[in-house]
């Protein structure tokens, strides 16, 4: 554990809590892509199956359980409790275009051809692209509420901090995980355009982020 890793995990947690609280307090999930949230729940489910096989640390177990619980709570709020506010007509990204290549890749490129390893690899690849329905939705409607953009900022920050963590671990422990690094860099690149808009529009202005 190093400071980048811890800060990354905290950013990730903050992002998820921001989104959950926003939906809970406003009793609305308008502008939120339910598809992205289902994909994230799928990411956590397939990645954290090792909860049943190995024990790493109390921190590790608690965080995994918390991420799983919060992601399912978010999906529940969007599709059950506040489904009347869900903008399904704008959440039209074709998820199968992500799932099919990601499933294929995880069978081709993995560390071991075992069910748990393939599912872990699938979760890493899927996480890299899971935000695309949300970014697509923002592009389609041309705007996002500021709280939604804060959520995206912390989600992107989490990935950027993980890259710093990998650089640190490479130099201090000679440890590197190529599948995680390549996917993490790809995931972070998706956020670059958003980061630019966030700093130039959301933080300098007020309220919604509107696209040119």
């Amino acid at each position: 554990m190093n400071v980048f890793r811890l800060a990354g995990d905290v950013s990730h947690l903050v992002a998820i809590i921001i989104l959950l609280l926003k939906i809970w307090r406003s009793k609305s999930c308008a502008g939120i892509s339910g598809k992205s949230q289902v994909l994230f729940a799928l990411v956590f489910t397939t990645r954290y199956l090792d909860l049943f096989t190995v024990f790493i640390s109390v921190y590790n177990t608690v965080m995994k359980v918390v991420f799983l619980a919060l992601s399912y709570a978010t999906v529940y709020l969007i599709y059950m409790r506040f489904r009347n506010s869900y903008n399904s007509e704008n959440d039209t990204f074709r998820v199968e275009f992500l799932l099919v290549p990601v499933i294929g890749l995880s069978f081709l490129e993995n560390y071991a051809f075992t069910p748990l390893e393939i599912l872990w690899t699938f979760s890493i690849f899927l996480e890299a692209v899971a935000i695309m329905p949300q970014l697509f939705m923002i592009t389609k409607t041309g705007e996002a509420e500021s709280i939604t953009t804060h959520y995206l900022f912390f989600l992107g920050l989490y990935r950027a901090l993980y890259i710093a963590n990998w650089v640190w671990r490479y130099h201090t422990e000679s440890f590197y995980d190529l599948i995680a690094i390549v996917s993490g860099v790809v995931q972070t690149i998706f956020f670059c355009d958003f980061f630019y808009l966030y700093f130039t529009r959301v933080l300098r202005g007020r309220g919604k982020m509107t696209l040119p």
Binding site: D9, H12, N60, N165, I179
Partner: peptide, 10 residues
């Protein structure tokens, strides 16, 4: 080892 190492991260 690698497999354990990969999974200590979230």
């Amino acid at each position: 080892d690698r497999v354990m190492g990969g999974k200590d991260e979230l």
